[in-house]
Each structure stands twice: as C-alpha cells, then as structure tokens.
Design a protein around this nucleic acid. Structure first.
Lengths: 157, 157
DNA sequence: GCCGCTGAGTATCGAAAGGCAACTCAGCCG
DNA sequence: CGGCTGAGTTGCCTTTCGATACTCAGCGGC
C-alpha cells in the first residue's frame, strides 16, 4: 500500500501543523517558554502585527496550550498575561528540533545564536533519536511512516 | 539580560521557520521522505494548490534540501522527480517531534494514525531529550534558551 | 474631577499570499 | 496528425497579513 493511499490530513504531523504551523505561533511559544508573557512585549520582540498576535494567542488559549492569567503590577490596574500550560510546554521538542536543524544548516560562522540548557542543572540539552531495538539513529535517519491504529484511507484516488 | 534583548530573527528556530515554517513545506518533506516523489502525486495527496507546490519545491531545491532529478518511465519522455538530499533528511527530527506531539494531543480514540519505524530494523522510533549531565528530560522539560556565540542584540529597544 | 498615560487590545484598509480553474508545452503513441 | 499525460504557468478571486489609527479602562497627578 503506497503512502499516498493514506489520508494526508489524518496524520499527526498534519494535525499539529494545522494548529501551530504558521509563521508566528511557534515563535510566540518560544518566547512564552522564555519568560516573555505580555502582549506588548511579544508584539515588540517578534515584530508581528498586533492583530495577528491577538488571533494567535486566542487560538493557543482555545487549544489549551496557553492560559490567560490576571496580574497586577504595583498599584496598576489588573491586566492579563499569557503562560504556557502543560501541552504548550510539551512543544519544546518541536522547538528544539527546529533549533538543532537551524544550528547545523543556517547558523553563521560565529556559531549557534542560542543554546538550550536544562533549567535545573544548566547543562546543554539535545534531542536523540533511538529505536526500540536500542539503536541510536544518527542525524540522517532512514525511517518510514507506517499506518497506525488511527490511520484512514485517503478519500479520493 | 532578558530574552527580549536578543534579536528574534537571528535565532535558529526563526531561521528554520522562515524556510519551512508554512502550511505546506513540512508536509511536502514528509511525503518525500515516504517515497512520494512526483509533482502530481504530491499535489493529489496533499491537496495543495499546484502553484503553491511549485513554489515550495523551488524553494526547497534552492535551499539544497531537495534535488530535481530526471527520470524516464518505460518509453515515456523524460520527466523530473524530487528527492530528499541530506539536509532534507535531517529534518526528520522536526517531523518526528510534530508527530509525537500530535499523537499525544490530537489523536482520536483509535490511537496514532501513523507510527514511525527505523527502516533498517523495523522497530518504532522515538525522540529522547537528554542533557549533557546525563539527565533524561521528560515530555515537559524545563529549559531556557541562552545566548550562544552567534547571538545578536535586538535592533530596537 | 479632569487629563493624560499605559497596556491591551479592535477597526480599517491596502498589499501579499493562497486557491481554483483553465491554459500551455513537450514528446510519445496510435 | 491529433490526442494523451505529466508538469507546470497564467489569471482571477478570496483570504490572510501588516501598518496605522482608534478604543477602552483605570490609575496618578494636578
């Protein structure tokens, strides 16, 4: 059965991309993961249009990746900030994969612009690809997607 | 120094997103990694507009992730297909990270729609996050991006 | 008590990107 | 010679994006 026999949109890659696969969502999540929490800070740092930021945050809140939390600065009026929830924090793997690839292929001669570290021990962090037989796969793994229990056949063709 | 002091676009995450961070590029790469190589097959399976597919393939070829190779079916005229190059195959980590997240959070009750396997031994494959001190970080790692040698300060502010 | 400031958005409008359908183009086959 | 097929390109329309301007709520100063 060729790969094209399976519905493209059912795949978890496609579903996840539909949620966060635009130009800005992952950058918003990156900033949230690094302590940038307020609307104007996000807009200023990312350079995203405020309308778009507003929509993206609403979508992320809706999907349960982010929560909107009230706060109050020293005698200022109550405002809201955005914080990662558990599912949002689990996106770290995606962000690290982007980071690692960019470091290998798009970094300038000075080296990587940013290094991810374990917040608890301070050591650099890396993603490792292993298979259940215990092989460690290198950076260019040969692998194949096979249909799982939730697979569906493509509607057309 | 707060995270916002560093230029958002210099980050490898931002650079990689600028290259493949749209609705379709990663799906094209997913299909290429699974043996779908021809323009019409890709267009049909993904449901992407042919114009957009054409642009995306051109960009991927340009960036060196994909090559355009001539082939000839039994006595048909020469045509071209698209194949992953090394840097394109290295995107597997990104695809697997999307897949894993989607399986955890967006899969239906039937389970994951697709399972990634090591092409050599057939065993399922997974991404593991470790730090250089040997800790294995769980699915919700607490980590922080710190400036690396190639970091740059933000232009404004 | 009014004024203006600030953070956090919405409104509006032109520009860019995406999608659909129709057209082109090259060569093989009958 | 005319049609078929794979691989795009062209044109047109719709949706999304981005920039600027406006709103809104409350606090602090005067």
């Amino acid at each position: 059965m060729p790969f094209t026999a399976y519905d493209s949109e059912t795949c978890s890659i496609a579903r996840t991309l539909a949620l966060v696969g635009d130009r800005w969502s992952l950058l918003v999540l990156r900033d949230l993961a690094n302590g940038v929490r307020r609307f104007d800070e996000l807009a200023g740092h990312l350079g995203v249009a405020r309308t778009v930021l507003s929509q993206r945050l609403a979508r992320l809140v809706d999907a349960g990746l982010v929560e909107r939390v009230a706060y109050r600065d020293n005698g200022a009026r109550e405002r809201h900030e955005y914080r990662l929830l558990g599912p949002g924090r689990e996106l770290a793997g995606i962000l690290l994969a982007f980071l690692a690839w960019g470091d290998r292929h798009l970094a300038g001669p000075d080296g990587p612009p940013a290094v991810p570290r374990h917040a608890d021990c301070g050591a650099p962090v890396r993603l490792v690809l292993t298979c259940d037989d215990g092989h460690e796969l290198g950076p260019r793994p040969r692998l194949r997607l096979e249909p799982g229990p939730g697979s569906r056949l493509a509607a057309t063709q």
